[in-house]
């Protein structure tokens, strides 16, 4: 196999991997983006993601309908978001600390209820074949996308458009940038943040459903391996722009596919390094984007990390 052929294989695998792996990143980061735009941080989305994965799998197994599982995962995520939102509107509560508590609570609860669902095989979500035009089975395989991926793209566009062009988007942005200004406009800051956190939780729950019902497609306790946390970092990378969130999610998905792809063409030296690519990327992004001298461009002014 020549170097060119190997390079093509890796590039192809990264693109295919980006499509396969990015959806949970996308949903969690869109949820976090919405929450942070309203001026609050929810680090608990990792727990929401894991609990969403568990509840979706359980419901799909019990009822035989994976789509019902997705809806229940969303609602469960919304409950987690609502709890976070409710606690954070109490006076003198640190939203980062509550977020970490919610993360542990979500994963712990998911492990507790999920015991019975590790073994059985639940019906999975179907895929849509977008590769009909190609004769290459690999291309076709790579373009077998899940409807949730497409929903995620639409959601990113709607959020991006909504933040700029709708009254609702303006209210959320105002709340996030300056609570006094929002108050002066007659907006109830607490209610806006509560709703934004709950809806953000809904998105993260749906992202979890993708993990357990489509790819990799089963419920195990190691399922998320930090993807929820990486997605939170990804929002900063994307500068709180939903469209950039989509790009960043694709990039993280591709980074995750790098290690296995290189090994599949026979390069296994340093595979630990390549396997760690998504984590290294998170770290690099945090270092590059944080500076004590300036505040982040595009950061909502009310966020507790920027205040």
């Amino acid at each position: 196999m020549g170097d060119d052929a190997g390079f093509t294989t890796v590039l192809f695998a990264m693109i295919a991997g980006a499509i396969r792996v990015s959806t949970p990143f996308l949903f969690v980061s869109l949820g976090e983006c919405l929450t942070e735009k309203s001026g609050r941080i929810n680090l608990g989305l990792e727990g929401t993601l894991v609990f969403g994965a568990m509840s979706a799998y359980a419901i799909s197994y019990q009822t035989g309908s994976p789509w019902l599982g997705v809806v229940v995962a969303g609602i469960a995520g919304m409950m987690f978001g609502a709890i976070h939102g409710f606690i954070c509107k109490l006076p003198k509560v640190n939203d980062i600390a509550v977020g970490i508590a919610m993360m542990l609570f979500g994963t712990g609860l998911a492990f507790f209820f999920g015991k019975a669902y590790i073994q059985p095989a639940a019906p999975r979500l179907p895929s849509i074949s977008l590769g009909w035009w190609s004769d290459d089975p690999q291309v076709r395989q790579a373009l077998d996308v899940n409807p949730l991926f497409l929903v995620g793209i639409v959601l990113a566009i709607v959020l991006w458009w909504g933040f700029r062009n709708t009254r609702l988007g303006l209210i959320v942005r105002t709340t996030g940038d300056s609570a006094p200004a929002a108050l002066a406009l007659g907006v109830n800051v607490n209610v806006v943040r509560f709703l934004a956190t709950a809806v953000g939780g809904f998105f993260a729950g749906v992202g979890g459903a993708f993990l357990s019902l489509y790819y990799p497609g089963s419920w195990t306790e190691g399922l998320s391996s930090g993807q929820g946390l990486m997605a939170v970092a990804l929002v900063i990378f994307a500068r709180w722009n939903p469209l950039a969130c989509f790009g960043a999610a694709l990039l993280f998905g591709a980074a995750g596919a790098l290690g296995p792809a290189l090994q599949s063409i026979g390069i296994s030296r340093g595979y630990h390094f390549f396997n760690a690519a998504p984590y290294l990327m998170t770290l690099a992004i945090m270092i590059l984007s944080i500076s004590p001298k300036r505040s982040l461009k595009g950061a909502p002014g009310e966020l507790s990390i920027t205040k």
Partner: peptide, 25 residues
Amino acid sequence: VQVIFTGEWSMPVREAEAANALIDA
């Protein structure tokens, strides 16, 4: 026999990626 190491005893997403990469190869 082509081998892919995932580097962890349990890492579902990477195991799925590895399986897909092997099948693509």
